[in-house]
Design a protein around this nucleic acid. Structure first.
Lengths: 210, 210
DNA sequence: CTACGATACGAATAATTATTCGCGTTTGGT
DNA sequence: ACCAAACGCGAATAATTATTCGTATCGTAG
């Protein structure tokens, strides 16, 4: 447990060029997920990851500069996946805005619940991830997408009202989603909560332009 | 870092009987808070706590069976404090329900933000705290208080609707409060968010009995 | 005052950790 | 077939950790 330097690198130290090393990297990432789910964040260990992947620690360290970088890769992949889903739903002009919001929140909550063990372990293992610039950029993009959506959902609101609205939708959605996922709720319970939250947010947005 | 036994004890191993040992325990708890705030959860260490308190590790272990038990004591104290505040506000019959809810959420959010570094570190250091029976009991009591409040706030709702309402108020309040506290928001921003959340919840509760 | 339990101490122990490095093996182009 | 580079290995290293225990000091009851 050597002290981390001020800026823990996340970039791979060496890129896989042959097929076997590409497979090795893939195996390591897959094993990392399994270790997080089986053992939890506390017991997420380079040795355990290497063992689970069926490779040696030395090999692991040829493509990842440190333990953090493995978690970082997983975190980014995870975020990109759910981000794309959300964007697609919000942009679907065939549905009325309220319906889009409801569908999006349902999808988001279900996604959060499905990946709960992984995400919780990631959060516990990388508590400073939110300060990372890449994470900040991702959230900015999300807020931009939400703001565009609000132009349709609350057309008569001022732009500063819309900014506040986007902020509120974002914080409510993400925080309730996270907390909800920690309770292993039933499918029905997720839908009920999602619909309640979506209803409240819809009311709030309608309010904005009044 | 010996493997934790299946049930990590939280009860003190020995009760302080003389004045100096009572002071020692108090010093340790105070130092624990300082260490969490200064160093974070990752670097929260029995040795560091003892050093900061100006006592030796051995003394620490005479009154705390393990590291967890220190964090557990802090967690319980923290919870009791904000719980009492909330209960008092919700029970104040002099104000209309909507106003009570708004005041309570403002107070809760401000409290969350003030103690953010401590609470975040506690959460990171004791990720399994929510499974503890004592924590479960505390949440039950909160929900009971909320349910009683809902009898005044949504008198025409059925009892199962009220249960859902209490659940929604609880999860929304706690989750948004936690996430909000992680951004070091300004006083005004906290009030704005609290009022928006309180407004949405009030609308939702009014809805319930319609 | 005195003796005994309570208290305090902190070096020692045992476990676990992230990360490195030297050496053997495989690959792919020639 | 040959060889340089890429790859894979895992014991060794150095750091840090929680917790114990033998010993020394203190407080107080009698």
């Amino acid at each position: 447990m050597r002290r981390r330097s001020r800026k823990p690198a996340t970039a791979p130290r060496k890129l896989p060029v042959q097929a076997r090393s590409a497979r090795l990297v893939a195996d390591i990432l897959e094993a990392a997920v399994r270790v997080l789910e089986r053992e939890g964040a506390q017991r997420f260990t380079t040795i355990r990851v290497a063992e689970t992947a069926g490779v040696s620690v030395g090999s692991l360290y040829q493509y990842f500069p440190n333990k953090q970088s493995i978690l970082y890769r997983l975190q980014v992949e995870e975020w990109d996946k759910t981000g794309a889903t959300i964007d697609a739903i919000l942009a679907d002009a065939a549905l009325p805005p309220a319906e889009r919001l409801r569908t999006m929140i349902r999808a988001f909550f279900h996604s959060e619940c499905e990946e709960a063990p992984l995400r919780n372990a990631l959060d516990a293992a990388t508590p400073d991830y939110h300060a990372a610039p890449e994470s900040r950029a991702k959230r900015e993009r999300s807020r931009a997408i939400l703001a565009k959506f609000l132009a349709a959902a609350a057309p008569s609101a001022s732009s500063s009202q819309r900014a506040h609205g986007a902020e509120l939708v974002f914080i409510t959605m993400t925080s309730v989603g996270k907390q909800l996922s920690e309770r292993r709720p039933s499918h029905a319970e997720v839908n009920r909560t999602a619909d309640a939250i979506a209803g409240m947010l819809t009311w709030y947005l309608a309010q904005l332009g009044a």
